[in-house]
Design a protein around this nucleic acid. Structure first.
Lengths: 249, 249
DNA sequence: GACTTTAAATAACGGCGTTAAGTAAAATAC
DNA sequence: GTATTTTACTTAACGCCGTTATTTAAAGTC
């Protein structure tokens, strides 16, 4: 309190008067409080979602978890879909981080392809519920805007850019970080003649489909996690082997 | 009417009296009527399900489609889950047929692996909603009994064997027709030295994961069907190539 | 101290799966 | 040929869901 008063005296001719500064500070404090609640909602939402799965995800239960009435959530998210969307966005942030980190290790393109594939499957096995949401249940979110850094994710509904859904690109046009990295790796491998000349995008998509299939089965009752891990390694071997140019016979 | 009377006179000392025969015929007629309604439900259910997807599948709408109240469905299926289960079972019947048919063409094991993979993807692309239900949304049904022929599928709830869910095998124990066929093909390929010695089941599962991944992406917004078809062929090439024993270098 | 703004709650709507109780017609029994 | 039972189905209701309109109470502003 007193510090503020002193500060105020020192800078009397600031464009900001004491009153307005306090007003702003107060406003910021409240804003921060809102952001915290918003994050609490997101937090409990993803827990609720991991516990009950996408199909039985209940907004009313999320509200109960955070100790508010269901309608309060509508002050922080436009509706259930936007809440899920935000959860998916967080998921993609973590996913991109994991994939980018993995891509930095290996020196040769072919090895990079292998490591990317392994990192992809590992992410899926470690966050099964999230993976299913991102790539199987609500993959439509994949094409919606990925504004980076702080902002977007922490933005309250009324503060968001008006159209909210800028013309989403047709499937195949838009590609996320992981996809771009994989395509680059394939292109590099071709350039360095580690693998035969081919359509890099199509090949990258084929590799993607492969590891996606493993995670899809691994996160379903069709395979145990242990099975899926072994199967994933086997698939990776087959694919890498299949990529290598064949010796003349 | 008169024919019946004549028939009756001819066989007077049958263990079945006229009355009981009529009773049985009547009963059978009614039974058939019930079966027809049951099939009508199943029919509209799978339409409703293709139209609205698994998530928005509504029992009440199915009822409306067939011109009955929702509760009537409960006279033919224990609940929503059992109705979906029956739909999935029908799906597996068609699926098995398609796969078995495909497996009969090729003469060499390696070619059979390729054809099986292609047939698998084709089924998925041709019945996307059904495929998703069978292998992604309700793959838990995969482990439930597959009684063949007429029976089970057309059985009314009260007529079904009492426990209804005989101890389902752990994942990995139970394998469906398509899986068995693929494993056999891999085993044959190994025996004929078309591919290297390896764990046939694990390899078959890896191949399965691959084609499953393609269909999973193809039936999602992440790829168009056209993309998926090209990607599927590319994946198949890579996998077959990867299977072949490598020439010494 | 009177005002406006804000954060939250209450009440309600229609839709869902599901169950219990009722009803009208058909089958059966006498 | 009437009375009784069985069958096929409906009506009514419950509790849950997402969502919206309305109300309340506190905080910020003047």
């Amino acid at each position: 309190m007193s510090e503020l008063a002193i500060l105020d005296k020192k800078s009397k001719k600031d464009s900001t008067t004491r009153k307005t500064r306090i007003r702003h500070a107060s406003r910021n404090r409240r804003e921060q409080g809102k952001q915290e609640l918003r994050e609490a909602i997101l937090d409990q939402a993803s827990k609720e979602f991991v516990e009950h799965g996408y199909e039985n995800f209940s907004l009313r239960r999320v509200a109960e978890r955070i100790g508010y009435t269901p309608t309060t959530i509508y002050l922080y998210f436009k509706n259930k879909d936007e809440l899920l969307h935000a959860t998916v966005q967080e998921g993609f942030t973590h996913f991109d981080e994991a994939i980018v980190a993995a891509s930095k290790g290996p020196r040769t393109p072919l090895k990079r392809i292998e490591v990317l594939g392994r990192a992809y499957m590992q992410f899926g096995l470690e966050h099964p519920a999230l993976y299913r949401l991102m790539f199987m249940q609500r993959s439509d979110f994949y094409f919606m805007p990925r504004l980076r850094g702080r902002g977007s994710l922490n933005m309250l509904p009324e503060a968001q850019p008006s159209p909210a859904k800028p013309s989403k690109p047709a499937p195949g046009e838009h590609r996320a970080v992981a996809q771009e990295l994989l395509i680059s790796a394939v292109e590099d491998a071709i350039a360095q003649k580690q693998i035969a000349r081919q359509d890099a995008t199509k090949t990258a998509d084929a590799l993607w489909a492969g590891v996606h299939g493993v995670v899809a089965l691994a996160t379903s009752p069709l395979m145990t996690r242990e099975q899926a891990e072994a199967v994933g390694e086997q698939l990776l071997r087959l694919l890498i082997q299949g990529l290598k140019p064949q010796a003349k016979r």
